[in-house]
Amino acid sequence: MIKLTGVFILSFAILAGSILSAQNLTSPQKNAVRSAESYLSLQGFSRDGLISQLSSPYGDGYSIADATAAVNSLSVDWNAQAIRSAKQYLEMMGFSCAGLINQLSSDAGDKYTKSQATFGAQGAGAC
């Protein structure tokens, strides 16, 4: 019973921390959070790629500071996002392991870290 209570307390603390950080966001940052969550529901994004999408004048046009604060307030498994992105690429066309890692980690591509890109390519079965 104590173990279950400890898990409950830890879960509550994490949830409370998320709620608290969300309460500290400005209105534009809260709107950017909503946009970020919408993007994440559609496809895989890296942290930097999501910030770029939110702050791009061709995307949502949030300030870089607001986009960064919004993304930082989210709890996202970036490795899982990298796998998701890798799988999406492989559904569209063939990639070698190295080619997919380069696409995922490129500044002109998805902007994952090299480690995340490697994890994603491996997790998607390209390596």
Results as ranks from 00 to 15, higher is better:
33 V>Q: 11
7 V>T: 10
62 Y>N: 03
72 N>V: 03
44 G>S: 09
7 V>F: 03
14 I>P: 05
57 P>G: 03
27 S>T: 15
48 D>I: 03
33 V>R: 07
59 G>D: 04
12 F>R: 08
6 G>Y: 04
76 V>G: 10
75 S>M: 14
13 A>Q: 09
63 S>L: 06
16 A>G: 09
73 S>F: 02
58 Y>E: 13
7 V>H: 04
9 I>F: 12
10 L>D: 15
71 V>N: 01
40 L>P: 00
53 Q>R: 11
63 S>M: 02
51 I>N: 03
23 Q>M: 11
66 D>R: 08
44 G>F: 09
55 S>D: 07
66 D>Y: 02
61 G>R: 03
70 A>Y: 02
70 A>E: 00
39 Y>I: 02
15 L>W: 14
11 S>H: 09
55 S>E: 13
77 D>V: 10
54 L>K: 06
40 L>Y: 07
47 R>L: 02
16 A>Y: 15
44 G>H: 05
10 L>W: 04
75 S>E: 14
43 Q>F: 08
46 S>E: 05
56 S>E: 06
34 R>M: 13
51 I>M: 10
5 T>H: 06
77 D>H: 12
43 Q>V: 09
5 T>S: 07
60 D>W: 11
23 Q>D: 07
35 S>E: 14
18 S>N: 12
46 S>A: 15
74 L>Q: 04
61 G>N: 13
36 A>W: 02
50 L>R: 07
28 P>I: 09
45 F>Y: 10
12 F>N: 08
71 V>K: 05
53 Q>A: 13
53 Q>G: 04
15 L>T: 11
18 S>D: 02
8 F>W: 14
53 Q>W: 02
12 F>A: 12
10 L>F: 12
41 S>V: 11
17 G>W: 14
37 E>K: 11
6 G>A: 14
63 S>K: 04
38 S>T: 15
72 N>A: 13
30 K>C: 00
56 S>G: 05
62 Y>R: 03
32 A>K: 05
45 F>S: 00
72 N>F: 09
5 T>Q: 10
67 A>G: 06
51 I>A: 07
19 I>S: 09
40 L>D: 01
24 N>L: 15
64 I>E: 06
23 Q>F: 13
77 D>L: 06
75 S>G: 10
59 G>C: 03
9 I>S: 07
10 L>V: 09
71 V>D: 00
71 V>W: 01
11 S>M: 15
39 Y>D: 03
37 E>H: 00
53 Q>C: 02
60 D>R: 10
26 T>L: 09
